[in-house]
Each structure stands twice: as C-alpha cells, then as structure tokens.
Amino acid sequence: MPLIDVQDVHKVYGHRANLVTAVAGVSLQVLQGEFVGIMGPSGAGKTTLLNLMSTIDRPTSGQIFLNQKNVTYMKNAALAKFRREQLGFIFQDFNLLAALTVRENLVLPLTLAGYSVVAINQALQKIVGILGLNSLLNRYPDDISPGQKQRVACGRAIITQPHLLFADEPTGSLDSKAATELLRYLTIINAKAGTTVVMVTHDAFTASYCRRILFIKDGQLFAEIVRQGSRQSFFQQVIDMQATIGGGGRTNGASAPGF
C-alpha cells in the first residue's frame, strides 16, 4: 500500500486569458519509509507538485491519497488537523518565525497539536539532543547561521514525529558543509524513525542522498532513477539525467564536495 498515491493530477494557475499549467497529469506512488527526490529544471512544477502532495494546495483535477485517505476534497479545517498531526515541512528559506526564540519555534507544532507541557519538554529534549541545538535554544533566528536555522527548521518538522516529511530545496540556502550535515540528519531520521521523506531539489549532490529520484519537466514525469550502488555512482547518474533533460539543472551541483 503506497503512503502517497497521486493519480493523474493537474494544476492550472491563472485566469482564462493566461493559463499556466504547472502540473500536467502526474501519477506517482511513494511507499512507507522511502526517501524520494523530485528533480527538474527551474519552473518545471516541482514546488507545485510538492504543495499538492502535502495538501497545501488543491489540484485542478485528479486525486491524491495520503495513507489511503483521499485528501483531494477534504475540508480546510480537517486538512489543517491532518497536516498538524501527520506532516512535517522544511523550506529553502527556513521559514522560522523571527519573533520567536529557537525553543519556541521548535515547540510550536506541539503546542498547536495540544500536547501537555511535560510531553512538549520531553520531545524538545530529544530533538535538541539529536540535532545539537542545546546552546541555541534562547537565541532568535536572526542571530544564528543559515545552517543552524535549517537545523532548527528540521527539528520543528520532525518534533511531532510525522509519517511524512516534505522538504522543498532544503539545502538551497546552505553552504556545502551545512548542507551535508543536514542531509546526514535527514538520512538518520529516514533510517532510524522510518519517516518517509519527499525532497525537492535541483542540486545533484543533495539528490544523491535519495533512494529514488523522479525527474519532471514541463509539469510531467520525465524519468525515474533508483539508487543501487554507491552514492558516488548515483550522483553520476543524476548528473547525466540532468544533462539529458537540459536547462539550468546544474546550478550548484558541480560545486559539490567530495564524498
């Protein structure tokens, strides 16, 4: 049984005069515990697809099932609850709340879900231990480095122990060292906690951490590759596929550090 089941989904933006088809008939499945990447050139519709899968946006046509539940027509309030309890998000620009301290940013999803103070503090200790955020708890997002920010965002995403973690270009604003560190954490979360991860990226190095990569172009599935050997060889495969698709894929992939 797939955890995510996308069936012939379309997404069209704009009004009659100028319609933009961002996603044009995509079908895909993601199984429990997978680490899936979505790649493609800029403007291919990656973010749109991710937003559709993560219930942030609604498809123009087609169906989406999450954990066998049809979320396509669910009411907003029910969707909000679903997101709160089942999903985690990481964004390129971190999306931390500047007015809140690191601690407050981390516990926010738990307070929203109505956990007790004791439970919240336990979960916080655990996450802080995993991500090494202890010294940052009372700082504000503006006072810490991008790498640290993304670790906080990651902590916020996984503190509720979601089934599904969506990440949109999570390494896009990070230097290579911070990026590697974050990807290591994501791998650990995927492997140890069994959290399913769906990650959008256009960076080959980042993508090489995935187990399976879907390539989309012009809103449609273009190709799919699955990692079999080492990450080094998988990285090479990704680069080749990007060359095949063409168009602005290798912006920071070439500068990837050694393995």
Partner: peptide, 22 residues
C-alpha cells in the same frame, strides 16, 4: 507570559504573545 509554559504552550499563544510584543 511566554516563559510561563503552562500558559504559553497552548495553540498559537506563543506566536500571539511574541507578535504582540513586537
């Protein structure tokens, strides 16, 4: 109020309090 967790760790109160002080 923000440090008083029993009060602030409820729903979006943390957010409300922080925004309010700004």
């Amino acid at each position: 109020l923000r440090h008083w967790y029993r009060f602030s760790y409820r729903k979006i109160r943390l957010f409300t309090l922080a925004n309010l002080s700004q």
